[in-house]
């Protein structure tokens, strides 16, 4: 019994950590650079599908299926999503701030359409199955399998966290924050905002793709339904709750929000009669939306938030 509980906890934590990876990607875009991405689900989907197409065994009813190692799939997923992010960014970052938001919204709609309709490549509404899972040789022992996957995902999150912390402290990260706080001053010092923003957006998109690939390999099956707009909302809620600009906050927020989400979903399915469950689930989403607005109104820095930035010190000097 307790072993079951541990392997369930391992499954839960591994899932939460895949969201933490998405959250870290969003943090580079929004938290550190101030770029608003409404198409997170699209970049995650691109990563997941690219990786699945590269690594699944050859199937007669589908193009692709190159049977490559999982690591290549992860890399390919990150690369594909990074490319897509670069394209969207190059198109819109030089324009008004909210054109990027509108364009990413369009990407989310279009990617959803593509995975549904390009059936020969993506399997259409049925998705892609038989995606190789890491440590599949351990599959007979659920506990060892769960813990090994948890360790792999924790390693990925830790590695990304250290790399991103290093990036944030590096001259590159300082330029990003300088641009976010005072674009004109940064420009006067010879930094080109558009180029730095585009780099940050591309890296963030690639990390989201990596998250999608890792999640796809962990579950072993992907379908268009996994990448609906609600995924974007969840990741946003995670980052806002944890505190934008703070990588540790992004990880904690992901685990916390995923926990609340999973628990309330379990409560809904246990307590609400089946015919009312769709409505209860809708109410759950109302809560996320209202919560997002409340945090923006009441506690814009999130639970942890970024340590005092240049702007906030300057503002606090004002009378």
């Amino acid at each position: 019994m307790s072993l079951d509980l541990i392997s369930y906890a391992a499954f839960f934590l591994t899932m939460a950590l895949t969201y933490a990876v998405m959250c870290l990607g969003l943090n580079i875009q929004w938290g550190q650079t101030g770029l608003f991405n409404v198409g997170i689900a699209a970049f995650v989907a691109i990563g997941a599908y690219a990786s699945a197409i590269l690594t699944t065994p050859d199937a007669p009813d589908r193009l692709g299926g190159f049977d490559l190692p999982i690591a290549i799939g992860w890399l390919g997923g990150a690369l594909a999503a990074g490319l897509a992010a670069w394209f969207v960014g190059a198109l819109t970052i030089r324009l008004r701030a909210d054109y990027l938001a509108i364009a990413t919204f369009g990407v989310a709609v279009s990617v959803q359409l593509c995975v549904l309709n390009i059936q020969p490549l993506t399997g259409g509404a049925f998705g892609i199955g038989f995606i190789p899972r890491p440590f599949n040789s351990l599959a007979g022992d659920p506990l060892a399998f769960g813990l090994a996957n948890l360790a792999l995902m924790a390693g990925l999150v830790l590695g990304l966290y250290l790399a991103l912390q290093h990036l944030a402290k590096s001259p590159w990260g300082r330029v990003l924050r300088a641009i976010r706080e005072d674009e004109v001053a940064a420009q006067a010092l010879g930094k080109r905002p558009v180029r730095f923003r585009l780099q940050a957006f591309t890296i963030g998109g690639a990390i989201m793709g990596l998250a999608g690939a890792a999640q796809g390999h962990f579950i072993g099956f992907i379908a268009p339904d996994n990448y609906l707009p609600i995924l974007t909302f969840q990741v946003w809620a995670m980052l806002i709750v944890g505190g934008s600009g703070n990588n540790r906050g992004a990880i904690i927020g992901a685990i916390l929000v995923w926990g609340i989400w999973a628990l309330s979903a379990a409560a809904v399915s246990a307590c609400v009669p089946p015919e009312q469950q769709a409505r209860a689930a809708a109410l759950q989403i109302v809560m996320i939306g209202v919560g997002l607005c409340l945090i923006l109104l009441l506690r814009p820095r999130g639970l942890i938030g970024e340590r005092r930035s240049l702007l906030s010190t300057r503002k606090s000097h004002k009378p």
Partner: peptide, 23 residues
């Protein structure tokens, strides 16, 4: 607040309003 905060608030509001209709 910055423009983008308003965009984000509208994003949250749209989610809440739409799901409220569904409810």
């Amino acid at each position: 607040s910055a423009v983008i905060i308003l965009v984000m608030a509208s994003f949250g509001a749209s989610l809440a309003l739409r799901s409220l209709l569904e409810f």
